[in-house]
Computed example of a mutant assay.
Amino acid sequence: MKQQWQLFVGLFLSLLIIIFAAMNTVVVPIQLGFGQFKTPLVIIIFSAVFMGALLIALLMASVVWSQKRTIKQLHKQNEELEAKIEDEVSIRMAAYLAASEVDQQEQQNYEEQLTEEDRDQMY
């Protein structure tokens, strides 16, 4: 929906520029450092709009490029952290399983040491 509004505003502004340029068709002199020439004002208006759009496009391209580079770095950092977490979980799980096996072995040894009478009392 947001892109539709942006398109609508862009088309509206373009229409305003076209109407403004069409109303200003007078030939005007342009003074440059090395000389002077005459051209219709409509060409100057369209040239200024085009150069402004080109400048904005270049600036936005640099911003987008910078953001893509940052996103790439963050993805790499995220993958490294996920690998680190996975390693930590594996280590802790192995430690837990080892402790669990030790506990089971101790329980088994304890039950073997009990006499028949002690077993009957427990259960």
Rank of each mutant, 00 (worst) to 15 (best):
T39L: 08
S90D: 13
P40F: 04
A94S: 13
K38P: 00
N109F: 13
F50V: 10
M93G: 01
V49M: 04
M93N: 10
F46I: 03
I45R: 00
Q113W: 10
Q107T: 15
A83T: 06
V64Y: 14
D103F: 06
L81S: 12
Q108P: 00
L97Q: 15
E116C: 01
Q107K: 15
A48N: 05
N109H: 14
L59G: 15
L59V: 04
K84C: 08
I44A: 05
I56E: 03
E112Q: 14
F12N: 01
I30R: 02
Q77H: 09
A61K: 09
N24W: 02
E116W: 08
L59A: 09
L55W: 10
E101G: 10
D87S: 14
G10A: 03
E82H: 04
K72P: 00
L41N: 00
V26G: 03
V28L: 11
R119D: 08
L58R: 06
L74G: 01
L15N: 12
E80L: 12
L97D: 13
V89P: 03
Y96W: 13
R69E: 11
S90N: 12
Q107A: 15
V102F: 12
E116F: 10
R119C: 07
D118C: 02
E86D: 13
E86I: 04
P40S: 08
L74W: 05
L55R: 05
V9M: 03
I18L: 15
E79I: 03
I85F: 09
Q31L: 06
D118I: 03
L41I: 00
F20M: 03
M122R: 14
Q73W: 04
K76G: 04
A48Y: 06
S47E: 05
L58Q: 11
M60P: 00
P40K: 07
Q67V: 07
V28W: 04
Q31W: 05
E82S: 06
L41Q: 03
Q105C: 05
T70K: 11
I18Q: 02
Q73T: 05
S62D: 12
F20V: 00
A57Y: 13
D120S: 06
L58W: 11
D120K: 12
Y110I: 02
I19E: 02
V102K: 15
L41Y: 01
E79R: 06
S47P: 00
S100G: 02
D118Y: 09
N78T: 09
E86N: 11
Q108S: 15
A53Q: 10
I44H: 01
L32A: 08
V89S: 07
A61E: 09
